[in-house]
Amino acid sequence: MDTASTRPTAARPHPPVPLRQFRLPLRLAALGVLLLALIPVQASALRFVTMGDSRGYTVDAPLNTAVLAQVNQRIKALSPAPEFLVFLGDLSYRANIPVDGHDHYTYKTWLDFMRAPSTGLPASLPLYMVIGNHELYDEGLAPHAEASITLACQQAYQNFIQTNASSTFMPNVTSLNDNYKNLAYSFTSEDGKSLFVVLDGFYIATGPTQPYDGAGALNQTQRDYLQTTLSQSSAKTKFVFVHNPAFGPSTQPTTACVASSMCEFWKIVNDNKATAVFNGHDHLFSRVLVNSGFNGANPGYSFTKSIPQVIAGTCGAPISGTYDEPGKPPLAASWNGKLQFNYSVVDVDDSGPQAKVTINSYCGDGSGSWSLCDRYTNAPVTVAPADSLLLRSGGQGQ
């Protein structure tokens, strides 16, 4: 055998590639970088979702699981995904539905549904809670359960929050004090550019029960807390959440505060230039700009700013005018009212000297059909609507 034929053959070197073959890819890459630099920034610095009032209609069906599951699936499909969700209260028809004579609080039932893979939200999505009046109802007081709110339910709610607190459930909150722990509190975005203040419009200072007042109220302690928290913050955007709205379109399309304490509350919101206020309680959607046009109906108050009050008032609770909810008079066009289930997606772009805020709200009849029903922005849109990320999200049914 010829040994020469078994020697490994040295690989022949490839001929040098002409430099001009690299020039086109390099030019295309440079062009791509340039085009990316010229495209307006569409991705928001912060996105969060707000919704409320998922309660069912009876003690046998305390959660409206069908509609709540629909909303959760839509939130899961959002792109980009939200950083957190603020729930505006009224989780369940009753806070306490006794079983065999023993207390059975429904807060954990709601949370388990919200975290179940098939019906809920991703386990990684932080949830923040706003207490509503239904968190304070005890079916043990039937048939007068809705006539009173109870201290025992308020304490059980606080214990529920404390027991389940984690990195994805009420994380990094600073409460007013121990009495208001997880009822009145604040937190900030990771970059510190957005502040969030949550208040309790149905706080029970003494027990064991307190008469239910549909308008709710904000006491001096919480108003002082709001004033201090807003005034001392250097955040670009400041959002306030309370279950009951200061102005109630479900009663009539009036510009009068629903209660004197809520006028005091809005004065603080106005004077400290809050970005937006979010509420539940009224089972509809509404967005109204509270401005100087509200002064005439509120003697002694001067609202000089134009601040949106957004009511995302049902992701399950009976829509105003249906079931056991009384009928409501027609809302003035400026209230942007919708008698449908709803939720709102808030985008904050703080890349410029003034933060741009866009609130996209989605409405549905509960059958599975949802659509964009309202949009608010505090700044002009700088790109063609067809090219907007927010509109593309809306077009995808998000």
Score class of each variant (00 low, 15 high):
6 T>N: 03
7 R>P: 01
8 P>H: 05
21 Q>Y: 10
22 F>T: 07
31 L>H: 04
44 S>H: 14
48 F>I: 05
53 D>Q: 06
55 R>D: 10
55 R>C: 06
56 G>R: 00
58 T>G: 03
64 N>P: 05
66 A>S: 12
70 Q>E: 15
72 N>M: 14
78 L>C: 13
89 G>L: 01
92 S>H: 10
92 S>Y: 02
92 S>F: 02
93 Y>T: 08
94 R>T: 07
107 Y>N: 01
108 K>Y: 06
111 L>H: 09
115 R>C: 01
118 S>D: 13
126 P>Y: 00
130 V>W: 00
134 H>D: 00
142 A>D: 13
143 P>D: 01
154 Q>S: 01
158 Q>S: 03
163 T>N: 12
163 T>C: 01
167 S>D: 14
175 S>L: 07
175 S>N: 13
176 L>K: 12
176 L>C: 11
180 Y>W: 11
183 L>Q: 15
183 L>F: 06
183 L>K: 05
188 T>P: 09
189 S>I: 09
189 S>W: 08
195 L>F: 05
195 L>H: 11
197 V>N: 09
198 V>E: 09
201 G>P: 03
201 G>Y: 00
203 Y>C: 03
208 P>C: 01
217 A>T: 13
221 T>K: 13
221 T>M: 01
222 Q>E: 09
226 L>W: 01
236 K>G: 05
239 F>P: 10
241 F>T: 11
243 H>E: 06
259 A>T: 12
260 S>C: 00
261 S>I: 04
266 W>F: 15
266 W>K: 12
268 I>M: 02
269 V>C: 08
270 N>M: 07
273 K>H: 14
275 T>F: 02
276 A>K: 15
287 R>D: 10
288 V>N: 04
292 S>P: 11
297 A>K: 11
299 P>A: 02
300 G>R: 13
303 F>H: 06
304 T>E: 15
307 I>F: 01
315 C>G: 08
322 T>M: 06
326 P>C: 02
329 P>N: 03
333 A>Q: 08
336 N>Q: 05
349 D>V: 02
350 D>P: 10
351 S>N: 12
352 G>R: 08
353 P>N: 06
356 K>R: 15
364 G>K: 11
367 S>W: 06
369 S>C: 05
370 W>D: 08
377 T>Y: 07
377 T>N: 08
379 A>I: 07
385 P>R: 13
388 S>L: 14
394 G>W: 00
